[in-house]
């Protein structure tokens, strides 16, 4: 192993931690706030899929399911990335959530000024959701959790189990 690949691994793990932190905290904030709802965000949707998101918000039952999935999805994805546990699943989950955010608030010309929610920063087609999607995809193809994470231990556990029975 040369120092270059050590550096590579360091930054991959760091990236995994940072994104994990971001997801986990976003999730915890929502879980800890009993008043939190995705309603405003969904109603603020613009672009091609806006009507889909609006209809999600219009039904109280669907909305509470979405709220639950989003809150705990964020928490679990965050934990998965930080702990390096089932990390590839976490990456896929994260990419799916971010894709939904991207589609509901697409940074397209014209739709940008329609959003009621204040957004920091200026975006043209590419926004932070998309960049985070790319980062998660990168983590998916360069996994680190077998060495730096619980996936390695999990792998050993699963590998050792059948041998023990012999």
């Amino acid at each position: 192993m040369n120092s270059n690949s050590n550096l590579q691994r360091f930054w991959l793990v760091a990236l995994r931690l940072l994104i994990g932190w971001h997801f986990l905290y976003e999730g915890l904030v929502k879980v800890l706030n009993p008043k939190w709802t995705s309603l405003g965000y969904l109603m603020d949707s613009q672009g091609w899929f806006a009507s889909v998101f609006h209809s999600m918000a219009s039904n109280a039952g669907t909305l509470s399911v979405i709220n639950f999935l989003n809150e705990w999805g964020l928490v679990l994805i965050g934990l998965s990335l930080i702990l390096g546990l089932l990390t590839r699943l976490g990456c896929i989950g994260g990419i799916l959530l971010l894709l939904l955010y991207y589609l509901s608030h697409p940074p397209f010309i014209g739709s940008e000024e329609l959003f009621m929610m204040p957004r920091e920063g200026s975006y043209l087609w590419i926004d932070r959701n998309l960049i985070e999607i790319a980062a998660l995809a990168t983590l998916y193809v360069f996994p680190t959790s077998k060495t730096f994470g619980l996936d390695g231990l999990l792998g050993n556990l699963l590998k050792n189990k059948p041998t023990q029975s012999h």
Binding site: V13, L79, L83, G84, T147, F148, G149, L150, G152, L153
Partner: peptide, 13 residues
């Protein structure tokens, strides 16, 4: 130890 290297992040969180 390597496997658990990121756990302190949870403490910080």
């Amino acid at each position: 130890i390597k496997a658990l290297v990121s756990v302190p992040a949870l403490g910080a969180m």
